[in-house]
Structures are given as structure tokens and as C-alpha cells.
């Protein structure tokens, strides 16, 4: 019976990072289903586009490029910022983590506002034509993710300036970083789809 010993786990940590933490897995789960949502919206775009000879359907002009391109650049920048925050979080540096999270939130705030203006710069309205509906749908779906990320980042960031901060909030920062990757990469693809692909094809 010596081969069936007990296992003592009292020494194990109560917080951990990455795939050792269950919150990380939860975040991945939500990312998968949100990713599926975006993929479906993109497929619908391609499906209806396949029915048309000209895209965008005349007389709708092409969407503007300037604002969305700035926004993509900002999103990429926010990736770097959130990684600074993560860097400090993994060392449990409370103040630095907090500061970088705040910078991150500021960038996210600007992106959110710019996203609002993007609706005006696509040169079509949701009720003009299925094309307009699709562009607004994609902007909107991704927009809610941006908004969620902004709020989440802001709330978690602010905790580091209070005395309520616990170990688990450091691992939350890592989840914010992970989510940011999803947010940015998915947008790079969708940016290509709605802004560049009508110009190229």
C-alpha cells in the first residue's frame, strides 16, 4: 500500500500566472466565443459581398482611411503599453503596475473615442444598404469589446492605487494583456477586411 500515499498540498500557492491560473482559462474561453462572433460577422460580410458586382455598392464611396489607420496604430501601441504593465505585475511591483495600467487605460480611452468617430468616417449608414449594415455591425461588435477592455483595464488599474490590492490583481493584469492581444489582432484582420480589401479587390 506504499504506492498509494497521500498528497500534501498545503505548500501550494494560492495565486499563479498564465495557464496555471483558472481566470486565464476563463479569459481564453470568452476570447474564443467572441472571436467566433467576429468571424461570423466577417463571413456574413464576405457572403453578401459575393452577391454584388461592385463593392461598396455604388454610389456609396469607399470608407476613409486616415482615422482608422491612426486607430490601428494606437491599438498596436497599447499592446506595448500593456506589456510594460504586465512586466511589472509579474514582479508584484504595485506602483509601477498601476501607473502603466493607467497609461494603458488612457490609450484605450482614445481608441474608444476614435472608434466613435470611425462610424462617421465609413461614409455609409446602417440603414442605407446591407453593406452599411455590415460595416456598422463589425465596427459595433468590435467596439463593444474595446469598451469592455477599457472598463476592465480602468477598474483593475485603479485597484493598484488602493489598499485593497491583493496578489490576484497582479495576475488579472496578465489577463488584460492577453485580452489586448486578442482585441488588437482581431482588429487588424477586420481593418484589412473593411478598409483595405474593398480597395484592393
Amino acid at each position: 500500500m506504499m504506492d498509494r500515499p497521500a498528497v500534501d498540498v498545503s505548500h501550494l500557492p494560492t495565486e499563479s500566472f498564465g495557464h496555471r491560473s483558472i481566470v486565464w482559462w476563463g479569459t481564453v474561453g470568452f476570447m474564443v466565443s467572441e472571436g467566433a462572433t467576429l468571424a461570423i460577422a466577417a463571413s456574413s460580410y464576405l457572403y453578401l459581398r459575393g452577391n454584388e458586382t461592385d463593392w461598396p455598392p455604388p454610389p456609396t464611396p469607399l470608407p476613409d482611411l486616415l482615422l482608422p489607420t491612426i486607430n490601428v496604430a494606437l491599438l498596436l501601441l497599447s499592446l506595448w503599453v500593456v506589456h510594460r504593465a504586465k512586466h511589472h505585475a509579474m514582479r508584484f511591483e504595485k506602483r509601477h503596475t498601476g501607473i502603466w495600467m493607467m497609461i494603458c487605460t488612457a490609450v484605450a480611452f482614445i481608441t474608444t473615442v476614435l472608434r466613435g468617430f470611425e462610424f462617421a468616417s465609413v461614409n455609409t449608414s446602417w440603414d442605407d444598404h446591407a453593406y452599411g449594415s455590415l460595416v456598422w455591425l463589425i465596427l459595433g461588435l468590435h467596439g463593444t469589446l474595446i469598451l469592455t477592455d477599457l472598463i476592465e483595464g480602468g477598474v483593475i488599474g485603479s485597484i493598484f492605487f488602493t489598499d485593497r490590492c491583493q496578489d490576484k490583481h497582479f495576475s488579472d493584469v496578465e489577463d488584460v494583456a492577453l485580452y489586448k492581444w486578442f482585441l488588437v489582432l482581431s482588429w487588424v484582420i477586420l481593418y484589412f477586411l473593411i478598409y483595405l480589401s474593398p480597395r484592393l479587390m
Binding site: S44, Y47, L48, N51, E52, P57, W126, D127, D128, H129, A130, Y131, G132, S133, L134, W136, L137
Partner: peptide
Amino acid sequence: AMLALDRLVGTHFFNVAEGGD
């Protein structure tokens, strides 16, 4: 959600007359 938008705010995802299907 697309169906609800078509019904509620007048998008055209499924409206043949406006490029939907």
C-alpha cells in the same frame, strides 16, 4: 442580433431589396 437589428433599427442584412439575402 442581426435579425433584431433588421426589425428594430432598419438594417438590411436579410432584405433582398437592399443587398441582403
